[in-house]
Measured scan of single mutants.
Amino acid sequence: MLYRITVRNADGEKLEIVVEMSEDEVRALAEELRKAGYEVRVEPIPEGEEP
């Protein structure tokens, strides 16, 4: 499935990426980023919607 991941650092800089991963993989990635001090938001992209 496609997911949009938005990551912000302490300075407020934002990075937005689209990935194709399983829900478990995305959850693990988000958890690791949060542990590293980043603010993370994950949104699933519905099938048929443009990323």
Rank of each mutant, 00 (worst) to 15 (best):
N9I: 07
V26L: 05
I45S: 12
G37Y: 15
L2S: 12
L15Y: 13
L29A: 03
A28K: 05
R27K: 13
E32I: 11
L33W: 13
G37Q: 02
E39T: 11
A36R: 15
R8N: 04
P51Y: 01
G12K: 05
V18W: 09
E39V: 14
L2T: 12
A10R: 10
R4T: 04
K35D: 02
L29S: 02
R27V: 11
L2G: 15
E47G: 14
P51F: 01
N9D: 02
E43T: 12
E43W: 05
I45R: 05
Y3T: 02
L29V: 05
T6D: 03
V40F: 03
M21S: 13
I17L: 10
E16H: 08
D24G: 09
A36G: 07
M1K: 05
V40K: 00
V18F: 10
E20R: 05
E13Q: 15
R34T: 11
I17N: 03
N9E: 02
K35Q: 03
G37P: 01
N9G: 08
I45T: 06
E13G: 15
T6Q: 04
E16N: 13
L15H: 15
E13L: 13
A10W: 04
A10T: 11
K14T: 09
P51K: 00
Y38I: 03
R4V: 11
I5W: 01
L15V: 08
D24M: 08
V18N: 05
T6S: 09
A36Q: 12
E20F: 06
E13A: 15
E13P: 11
V40W: 01
V18G: 01
A30D: 02
R27M: 08
Y38W: 05
V7N: 00
L15D: 15
E16C: 03
S22N: 08
D24E: 11
L33M: 13
V18E: 11
E23G: 10
K14C: 01
G37M: 02
P51H: 08
M1V: 13
A36I: 08
A28S: 10
A10M: 11
E16Q: 06
E16F: 14
L29H: 13
D11I: 12
E39Q: 12
E23A: 15
D24C: 09
V18D: 03
E49C: 02
T6W: 10
E23I: 07
V26I: 05
K14V: 11
V19H: 02
V42H: 04
E50G: 09
D24N: 10
E50Y: 09
A28F: 11
E31R: 04
M1Q: 11
G12F: 07
T6G: 02
A10G: 12
Y38S: 10
L33F: 15
E32R: 15
L15W: 11
I17V: 03
Y3E: 00
K35I: 11
P51T: 09
E39L: 05
E25V: 03
A10H: 10
E20I: 06
E49W: 11
P46D: 12
V40H: 00
A36S: 04
M1S: 07
G48P: 15
D11M: 12
P44W: 10
V42W: 09
V26S: 04
V7L: 14
E13S: 15
E16Y: 15
G48D: 10
P44T: 13
G12V: 03
R27Q: 11
G48H: 12
I17S: 14
L2F: 10
A10C: 02
Y3P: 00
E16V: 06
V19A: 14
P46V: 15
M1W: 06
N9M: 07
Y38C: 01
E23S: 08
E43V: 14
V40L: 02
D11P: 04
G12Q: 05
G37H: 06
L15T: 12
E20V: 10
T6P: 00
A30H: 02
D11Q: 14
G48I: 13
A28Y: 12
E50S: 09
V7Q: 02
P51L: 04
I45Q: 11
A30P: 00
Y3K: 01
E47Q: 08
V26Y: 01
R8S: 05
R41C: 02
G48M: 15
E25K: 06
E43G: 03
R41M: 08
A30K: 04
E32K: 15
P51A: 14
E39C: 03
E49I: 12
E16L: 10
E47W: 05
E20A: 05
E25L: 06
M21Q: 02
R4C: 03
G37E: 01
E43R: 06
P51Q: 07
P46E: 13
V42K: 00
K14H: 08
R27P: 01
R34S: 11
T6E: 07
R41S: 13
R4K: 14
E25S: 06
R41A: 10
V19G: 11
V40C: 01
V42F: 08
Y3D: 00
P51V: 06
G48V: 15
Y3G: 00
R4F: 08
A10S: 05
L29M: 13
G12Y: 07
R41W: 08
E23M: 09
K35G: 04
L2E: 05
L2C: 15
V26H: 00
V26Q: 01
V26W: 02
E25N: 10
A28W: 03
K14D: 06
S22R: 13
M21H: 02
P46M: 12
E50L: 12
V26G: 01
T6L: 05
R8L: 07
P46Y: 14
S22C: 03
L33A: 02
I5D: 00
S22V: 11
A36W: 03
R27E: 10
L2P: 12
V26C: 09
L15M: 09
I5E: 00
G37W: 15
A30M: 09
L2I: 09
R27A: 09
I45V: 06
A36V: 08
E20H: 06
D11A: 13
G48E: 13
G48L: 14
E47Y: 08
E13I: 15
V40N: 00
T6H: 04
A30S: 13
Y3M: 02
A30Q: 05
I45L: 11
D24P: 14
V18Q: 14
V7D: 00
P46N: 06
E43S: 07
E31C: 02
E50K: 09
E43Y: 09
G37L: 01
P44A: 12
Y38M: 08
P46L: 15
R34N: 08
L33E: 00
R8I: 06
S22Y: 05
L33N: 01
A28I: 04
E16P: 08
V26D: 00
V40T: 02
E23R: 07
R34Q: 07
E50I: 13
E16D: 10
S22G: 12
R8H: 07
Y3N: 01
E31T: 13
G12W: 03
T6N: 06
E23C: 04
V42C: 02
E13M: 13
K14P: 12
I5A: 00
Y38L: 08
N9Y: 04
N9A: 06
V7E: 00
Y3S: 01
A10P: 14
E49G: 08
E16K: 04
E47S: 13
V19F: 03
K35A: 05
E39K: 03
E49P: 14
I45H: 12
G48S: 15
E16S: 07
P51E: 09
D24R: 05
V7K: 03
M21K: 09
